[in-house]
Nucleic acid binder design. Structure first.
Lengths: 143, 143
DNA sequence: CCAATAAGTTCTAAAATGCAACTAATTTGT
DNA sequence: ACAAATTAGTTGCATTTTAGAACTTATTGG
């Protein structure tokens, strides 16, 4: 009997199957900035309550959020970020970079993620496995 | 008369309003790897043709793709990536990183974007304005 | 000049999303 | 302690998006 070879799959599809909808990344953003109650999320995002329920459940099942009672045994809940959630920060920053650079909206200041040590905005860089920056021209996107 | 102060807006929302659906980033991925005809995109993505039409138009209006005839005057079209499209590569790479690190699917090899100079996968790093890596702990996500 | 191809369009059906009102437990204020 | 307000949802229905398949129109290769 032959072992089944692990198929090469698209990690982008995989990611989008979890967070590729209109709300999930915004929920992640809000939870990371400390908006972690059902009602505050609903108000902040202006999302339908039933959809919010769905998305929170999906994100919890995916291990991106954990739901815990405000105090042991209570019914009031907190939605907290897991390490897997924090791991989405580079994605969020890359989107912020992209909008700040390419969006055509005059008279708008885009909110940035800030490096507390310097007070300056953080960005995102492509790097090789030596940690050195890599140019777009050096990429093989064949995929 | 007072000048209207530029409002601080969320760049993540802005980005997601363009590419925050289940298909757009996959279309971007495919175009970047050279899949740039209507039918090949449809076949590659298994997307409904009418939806593909919509998405391609949206992406073109957003300046992410340009549609040009295969030769001058022809009706056969090519969808090509603009610089604004290439600027999404860090986002794609960040999603690939995230899946490769956090997705729980045994026996799958995730396709990576490769650094042609080394043959090794490219990743993405958070960097301060000095170009130095920044830790998640040093970020102000208040936003 | 015929058969195949490419790039859509046009229906209709199904799924996802939005909206408002409702529930049931739990805090809060007095 | 107890009434009023809050919280975290649920439920049912309307609207919007997406999917699927067949159809159209022009091009193109042999």
């Amino acid at each position: 009997m032959r072992e089944k070879k692990p198929a090469v799959q698209c990690a982008i599809e995989e990611a989008l199957s979890v967070i590729g909808d209109r709300w999930s990344l915004l929920i992640v953003r809000d939870v990371l900035r400390g908006v972690n109650r059902f009602d505050s999320l609903q108000e902040s995002l202006q999302i339908s309550r039933n959809i919010l329920t769905q998305r929170l459940n999906t994100l919890e099942e995916a291990g991106i959020l954990v739901k815990i009672p405000i105090k042991p045994g209570a019914r009031r809940m907190l939605y907290n970020a897991t390490p897997k959630c924090f791991a989405l920060v580079p994605t969020l920053v890359s989107l912020i970079d992209w909008s700040a650079r390419w969006s055509e909206k005059p008279d708008t200041r885009w909110a940035r993620v800030i490096d507390k040590r310097t007070g300056e905005p953080v960005t995102v860089d492509l790097v090789g496995n030596d940690g050195e920056p890599v140019s777009l021209l050096d990429l093989d996107l064949t995929y």
